[in-house]
Design a protein around this nucleic acid. Structure first.
Length: 568
RNA sequence: UGGGGCGUCGCCAAGCGGUAAGGCACGGGUCUUUGGAACCCGCAUUCGGAGGUUCGAAUCCUCCCGCCCCAGCCA
């Protein structure tokens, strides 16, 4: 089956670039970049940006640089740079030899700062942080000029050099752009360009005690790298005049165009680094790779494939409108991908014993089972059938409601790839009344699952032969939050108030077919009729299998049940 | 009563003056040894609202309404 890659859907950024190409605006070049700050793990929102930047570059025959925006050593860490590189590679993108760090430009950036000072466009300000805030004014009132605003170029040069030399304490001075304290755009009210911070940087160590601010470093880094289109999220739109101002004052190689798009929000989860960090640090989840998190590490562990995530990023589109994508679309993308690639297998997650009374006690038959009906090339396998089996508890009801057409007393159903069985007796625990075993008869004529007499059954159940079953732990995941928009903290609520207490359900002693004993970490399966599962890459071992549920199968029966509950 | 941005179906999203694409979700059906998959059908006389321009407006103009972002020596 050849999947023809249809041309990507149009979006405003693609349109801008296509137009720039047509008019030869950047010399017919397209150069983008993905510039994460190494202060947290990448999440699905970053995936949108990664797909956009690398995708656009590939589409227009350009390049996409991978650059760490590491200008704030107090928040950044090597752990994050490593995870970020791993995740981008895993997602399927290759930056070749174009790996950069803003910190590699510190010396050049310092030179540009000197140029700005010489041009009379920047000055060393000795106000305290609080004073700077006061002088900035408010949204509706203009700011006031700093008393240090008119220091001479010589004095500024001297002071800035001494800032670098480490002659001052943290916070004693900053370098500021000299723009306009009355600008209606607060970013233009003499923004801070450099601050003193005696913090060890994960790459430059203690070579520097002054660090450039984002606004100063970012545009210049883009220019140094010859970026043509600097794509970022909407909150930077107000910074664009500053981005342009800085590049206009300096003698730079080129002047990239900043374009902003709306960041991704996903229902029933949180995306901000601040909130993800809280969930991780306060133990609401088990680390950055917790399968309930929208981090790429978490999604990978959960069983999401890079293909599914890329497809999702393609389907959501790119715009400037604040939006929240329905979790259902993400689930659709995983199912779409896993449906054609995941081998089918039988696993009983909540076992109920079934004894086939008329089946010979010592007999075992190895029956043919199809590995993937979507892909005959994946072949078949043998699964053992015997007198004692496990079926799913949910597949039996002593007193079934209308529309429930699985097993019930007296009813006949098909055991997938095996036989028709009829329930003739129900064994219960004398004390609790709980059903603990089913007695059935089988029809030898229906071997393989077809009835020569043409009689039909309304249901096909999955099952596992009891003596051959391999035990496993199965972790069922559900949405982390009960509220579609947990980040809405109006009315004095905290996003953590909406955590779903049942987001993780651990099932022990699940029974899986024997072939799974050799399953390797990370491998993906469809447990027939239940959903897609993967072998946990961290906690699973050959003798103690652990499976994560990636996503359930579409479940129309559950829909009927829920609809019924709604009515009550 | 500062500045910037955004408002097209429940959720995304095309459209850029010629008479509302597509996907998800949802509803119905066909088929089926997964209540899966696949396939078929349905789903905005209307584009935040009101005026105006035009033969013709979601697309142009005016006013209004709503939502988001900005007062870090964070990015």
């Amino acid at each position: 089956m050849s999947t023809v890659e249809s041309s990507p859907p149009p979006n405003f950024i693609r349109t801008i670039i296509a137009e720039d190409m047509r008019t030869n605006r950047h010399g017919g070049r397209v150069a983008t970049r993905f510039p994460p700050e190494p202060n947290g793990y990448l999440h699905i929102g970053h995936a949108k940006s990664i797909c956009l930047n690398f995708g656009l570059a590939a589409e227009f025959g350009g390049t996409c640089n991978f650059r760490f925006d590491d200008t704030n050593p107090s928040k950044e860490d090597i752990e994050y740079v490593e995870s970020i590189m791993y995740d981008v590679r895993w997602l399927g993108f290759d930056w070749g030899d174009r790996l950069y760090y803003a910190s590699d430009y510190f010396e050049q950036l310092y030179g540009y700062a000197l140029d700005l000072i010489r041009a009379g466009k920047a000055y060393v300000c000795s106000l305290s942080a609080e004073e700077i805030r006061d002088y900035r004014g408010t949204l509706t009132q203009p700011g006031k000029d700093s008393p240090y605003r008119n220091r001479s170029v010589e004095e500024n040069l001297d002071l800035f050099r001494r800032m670098r030399a480490g002659e001052f304490k943290d916070g004693e001075h900053v370098l500021r752009a000299k723009i306009d304290m009355a600008s209606p755009n607060l970013n233009m009210r003499d923004p801070v360009l450099y601050r003193i911070r005696r913090v060890n940087h994960h790459r430059t160590g203690d070579r520097w005690v002054i660090y450039p601010m984002y606004d100063f470093a970012h545009g210049l880094s883009d220019a140094i790298e010859g970026i043509t289109h600097s794509i970022c999220t909407m909150e930077y739109e107000d910074h664009r005049p500053l981005y342009d101002w800085i590049l206009d004052q300096l003698d730079v190689p080129c002047h990239p165009q900043q374009i902003e798009f709306a960041r991704l929000n996903l229902s029933y989860t949180v995306m901000s680094k601040r909130r993800l960090l809280q969930l991780v640090e306060k133990g609401y989840v088990r680390g950055w790779d917790d399968p309930r998190l929208p981090t790429l590490a978490g999604m990978r562990r959960r069983g999401f494939t890079p293909e599914a995530i890329r497809r999702f990023c393609e389907l959501i589109g790119v715009g400037k409108k604040e939006s929240t994508v329905d979790l259902a679309l993400l689930e659709y993308c995983v199912r779409e991908d896993l449906n054609r690639r995941a081998p089918r297998v039988m696993a009983v997650v909540r076992p109920l014993k079934m004894v086939v009374v008329n089946y010979p006690e010592d007999q075992v038959e190895w029956l043919d089972a199809v590995n993937n009906p979507e892909d005959p090339a994946m072949g078949t396998r043998k699964v053992p059938f015997s007198r004692e089996l496990y079926i799913e508890r949910e597949d039996f009801m002593e007193d079934p409601p209308r529309k429930f057409f699985r097993l019930a007393p007296g009813r006949e159903v098909r055991l997938r790839y095996a036989y028709f069985v009829r329930c003739i007796d129900v064994i219960k625990d004398e004390r609790t009344g709980e059903v603990i075993e089913l007695r059935c008869t089988y029809d030898p004529e229906t071997r393989g699952g077809g009835a020569p007499d043409g009689r039909q059954v309304k249901a096909t159940l999955h099952w596992v032969s009891a003596p051959h079953a391999v035990e496993a732990e199965v972790r069922l995941y559900d949405k982390l939050f009960l509220k579609a928009n947990p980040a809405d903290e109006k009315n004095g609520t905290d996003f953590k108030d909406h955590i779903n207490p049942d987001s993780l359900q651990v099932l022990q002693s699940c029974k899986v077919e024997p072939g799974l004993a050799q399953a390797t970490p990370g491998s993906l399966y469809q447990f027939e009729r239940l959903g897609y599962f993967c072998v946990d890459a961290v906690d699973s071992s050959p003798g103690a299998l652990v499976f994560n549920r990636t996503v359930t199968l579409r479940d129309t029966w559950a829909k009927i049940v829920n609809a019924g509950k709604q009515k009550e």
